[in-house]
């Protein structure tokens, strides 16, 4: 709305403290009374933080509390927050603002990754679902242990996010659409 490519020198001083980025969630959201500015701005800040935390849970899951399921749920909750703040138009069929992805795709990809990870050890003569530990020496960080069951967790993580998004889509915006009476009942 007010975002302009002007450099700070050219901006009149009255506009210095005007927001330069887009702070409200959905750009093309129609102006209705149902929006709360505070919630949307807070969610805007929280959203990436919660996502990073969910990634942390995902990676730490093998040795500590966490894992693909809880990580996925936390990430899903981030999207729930966005849904509550921005409504159905924010989520719909998109993750973030650029990548368009249908939630069932996430479910499919996640489940595929999980099953393939389960089957992969048989190629090395190990039993199904066996895991191995890879130790990698990363220059600055030091020794990093990578357990192969992380891939299974990644699959579960994606699956859970897909399920939560699908739930928001069908039970959230789907019902909203029905309520507006405009949606066709499929």
């Amino acid at each position: 709305m007010t975002a302009s490519p002007n450099t700070p020198e050219r901006v009149p001083w009255k506009q210095w403290d005007e927001p330069s980025g887009q702070w409200m969630l959905p750009g093309e959201h129609p102006p209705t009374a149902e929006r709360t500015l505070l919630l949307e701005v807070v969610v805007r800040i929280l959203f990436p933080t919660v996502l990073v935390f969910s990634l942390y849970l995902l990676i730490v899951g093998h040795y500590g509390p966490g894992g693909g399921f809880s990580g996925g749920l936390v990430a899903g909750l981030a999207f729930v927050l966005r849904y509550i703040a921005g409504g159905g138009t924010d989520l719909g069929a998109r993750v973030g603002s650029r990548i368009r992805l249908r939630p069932p795709m996430l479910v499919g990809v996640g489940l595929s990754i999980a099953v393939l990870t389960a089957l992969a050890p048989t190629a090395f003569g190990a039993p199904v679902l066996a895991s191995a530990k890879l130790s990698v020496a990363v220059p600055v960080v030091g020794d990093v242990d990578l357990v192969t069951s992380l891939f299974l967790d990644v699959g579960v993580y994606l699956l859970i996010i897909g399920v939560v998004l699908d739930l928001l889509r069908s039970l959230g915006s789907g019902i909203e659409r029905d309520a507006q009476g405009a949606g066709e009942r499929s």
């Binding site: 069932p104 795709m105 479910v107 499919g108 990809v109 996640g110 489940l111 595929s112 099953v115 393939l116 389960a118 089957l119 048989t122 039993p127 199904v128 679902l129």
Partner: peptide, 24 residues
């Protein structure tokens, strides 16, 4: 042989995932 026992469980699950991906 023992990996064979898991296939009746894992293959349909993989199939379910793939049919979601190829839903078009």
């Amino acid at each position: 042989m023992s990996a064979l026992v898991t296939l009746p469980v894992l293959l349909p699950m993989l199939g379910a995932a793939l049919t979601v991906l190829f839903s078009r």
